[in-house]
Amino acid sequence: MDFKRIEVIFLIVFFSLDIFLFLSFRNSQQLVSSTRTNTSTVTEMRKRNISFGSLDSKSGYAYYLGTQPNDDLEENSSKLQDQKVQYEEVNHTLASTLDSPIPVTTSNRKKIMDKFIKKESNILYGKNYKYAPQLSTHSQMVYVTTSNLGDVYDKTAQLIFTISDGEVLGYTQTYVRSMIILHERQSIKSEKDVITNLYANSEIPNNSKIAYANLAYTKLLEAKGSTIYIPVWFVTIKNKDSKVSTTKKVNAFTGNIIKSSTNGDSSYNAQ
């Protein structure tokens, strides 16, 4: 596709974000104004038996990114060996069933699958993915797309292995070829800002542990056939009694908490 045309499409889409950005900024100001200082909040969290490591207070930078869907997986599926594959065009998803399931254990599965994905006859573009323990479960291993711009925690750019009875049976894969920077870099909220804000807004219960706090890109919206991504903090909180984990998502630009809709997608209305 003509690169100039892609740039024009992204420019049109980006202008449509103006109202969204204004509303998000206004909502984030309301959140900040009601939050205590970070230092006193951290002290209070520890008194309430909330465990966490050292919180980074440094504010970094990130971008609005854009991409367009492609059918690279379908076009290169003939390179795959020892597996049966199907391609779903609507969501650009490749689904595979391995001819010979791969035996794994909890302790060795990362090492085995890290090696497996690097061979192109096993996984297309496998070198562009890395394991994401925060998104994985006992029955699924999730690998995410990674680049010099950052990781992508989104179903549009994931490699998910299915595990049953100690065997990897197959996988589903989505892939983004490249990301286009839509705007100059902007400052983002620090890890410390995000976690203390979550606590101040009653999103972190007493007697819990911050298991993960990772920054990654995820889909904001789709418009005119293009996908826009923003940086998001993914904070996983584990209850010390029930051992149940929940993951909170926070817009890294504004600090707004992202809600999940009933269909599992994200909603960018700030609490």
Rank of each mutant, 00 (worst) to 15 (best):
T246W: 00
L149N: 12
N214V: 01
T145R: 14
Q186M: 15
K155V: 10
T247Y: 07
M141Y: 04
Y131M: 09
D241P: 00
Y129W: 07
N201D: 02
T145Q: 14
N251S: 09
Q140N: 11
Q158R: 09
K130T: 11
V235C: 05
V235E: 03
N197V: 02
A211D: 13
D154V: 09
Y171F: 15
S187E: 13
S226G: 15
L220A: 09
T246K: 13
V144M: 05
D165Q: 12
P133N: 10
V142Q: 08
Y125L: 03
E167T: 07
D241L: 12
T174W: 01
M141Q: 10
N239D: 15
L182C: 11
P133S: 03
R185D: 14
V232G: 01
K155Y: 13
D154Y: 03
R185C: 04
A223W: 08
S136R: 11
S164L: 12
K249W: 01
I257Q: 05
E191V: 05
L215G: 04
L135V: 04
V142W: 08
N197I: 02
E222V: 10
L149S: 13
T146F: 08
L149M: 13
V232A: 07
V144F: 03
A132D: 11
A216L: 07
P205W: 04
I163E: 11
N201S: 09
S139Y: 09
K192T: 10
V250Q: 03
G255M: 01
Q173R: 09
P133I: 06
L182Y: 06
T174G: 02
M179T: 04
H183L: 03
K155D: 14
Y212M: 01
K209L: 11
Y131D: 05
L149C: 03
N148A: 11
A213D: 02
I180M: 15
T246Q: 06
D193V: 07
I204W: 09
I160N: 06
A211S: 12
Q186D: 04
S242R: 02
I258D: 00
D165T: 07
R185E: 14
D241K: 15
T254R: 00
N201A: 01
Q140G: 01
T247S: 05
T254N: 00
G126T: 08
K192D: 10
K127D: 15
I181C: 07
Y129V: 04
H138F: 11
P133V: 05
K127L: 06
Y143K: 03
R185N: 14
A252P: 05
